[in-house]
Design a protein around this nucleic acid. Structure first.
Lengths: 184, 184
DNA sequence: CATAACATGTAACTGGTTACATGATTGG
DNA sequence: CCAATCATGTAACCAGTTACATGTTATG
């Protein structure tokens, strides 16, 4: 379902596009939020044509390029989906699972793992902060920035992840020091 | 892969259990972090027996109860997985996708959506805070709490989500007021 | 004896990934 | 003419969900 919405949203915000172009977009912009391979996108586009959410037009270009345009019905679908978040989606979070199982490692190894995680999250956070700085530098301020709310959410999320990993590492190091590295 | 680790982790921390009991555990404790239905658990246990990560023992009890015990090989697997987080897992985040598409809604509807989201996250956060309070009340303090790091991460995450939704709603409301509810 | 809780499994389907397959156009 | 890029599709497979199917033991 969400892939469908992500595709419709891209068509709504960027205008008509081919499957190839949509796949490219999923490699950069939306990548922080959702991704899909072309092998999933092409069949999905076919389904959307069938249900009337988009229309196709065949044009020239390598091996029969097809351009898809969102319809009013498609826009209505996005609207309904964005405005009506379902109550409680299944959580399947590898970082949280790692956090859960952390006490199964000896504290010093667990601490080292968290140090590494903190560093990686710090690096990802830096990337996002640079993205935002670049957008702010060239964009006229005051605009309702497309993707801006998602970027903000990403920055906040990585900040929390970095700090949590850092402080968990400190806690584990304190415990390791207290009882001389006993674990499990 | 992660389901396998989640099962091994549960067996490591809680001791031998049947598939039925593991399915129950996935309904409560680990539920915040990972979940699985019995229809996925039973085949996975069979695979783990085959690869030597666990051993089975058939006992009495409704329709041939089978009890699974983790082996040293299984413990090694957990250890390796927890300590070696892979660089960059695929992100597929419905909340972030919604955030991304928010500017496609008229600002007043977008703001209302974010208000609702903030409320739901606030409620989930309250639940987790109560969980932690209950654990702290009855548990001897100073213990390395099993699942405690994951709980901490959950609390921080929902706090960020609540605040982000709240502040995004405020931003959208300000914009809606400024230009009289024009959108899209 | 009926019902709830215990207990294990299979089948059909959806969503997503990896790999396979093909062909057109553009630039060096 | 060769390589890169544009461009679209299919097949096999893995993970996860829903629904189907079956049988046991304890309790009122």
């Amino acid at each position: 379902m969400s892939l469908r919405i992500a595709l419709l949203g891209t068509l709504a915000s960027k205008g008509p596009a081919s499957g190839y172009e949509l796949a490219k977009t999923f490699d950069d912009v939306i990548n922080q939020v959702w991704q899909a391979k072309h092998s999933q996108i092409y069949p999905e586009l076919a389904k959307m044509v069938e249900s009337g959410a988009v229309t196709v037009e065949e044009t020239g270009g390598g091996r029969g390029r097809k351009v898809y345009t969102i319809t009013e019905a498609g826009r209505t679908e996005i609207d309904a989906w964005v405005a009506h978040p379902e109550p409680h989606r299944a959580v399947r979070n590898e970082t949280a699972l790692r956090a859960f199982l952390l006490p199964l490692l000896p504290p010093d190894r667990a601490a080292a793992t968290m140090r590494g995680l903190a560093e990686r999250h710090a690096a990802l956070l830096d990337d996002l902060l640079k993205d935002r700085a670049a957008i702010e530098a060239r964009g006229a301020s005051g605009e309702p920035p497309f993707g801006g709310y998602a970027l903000d959410l990403g920055i906040r999320t990585f900040t929390v992840l970095r700090d949590w990993a850092r402080e968990t590492a400190e806690d584990l190091e304190r415990r390791a020091a207290e009882n001389g590295g006993k674990g499990r």
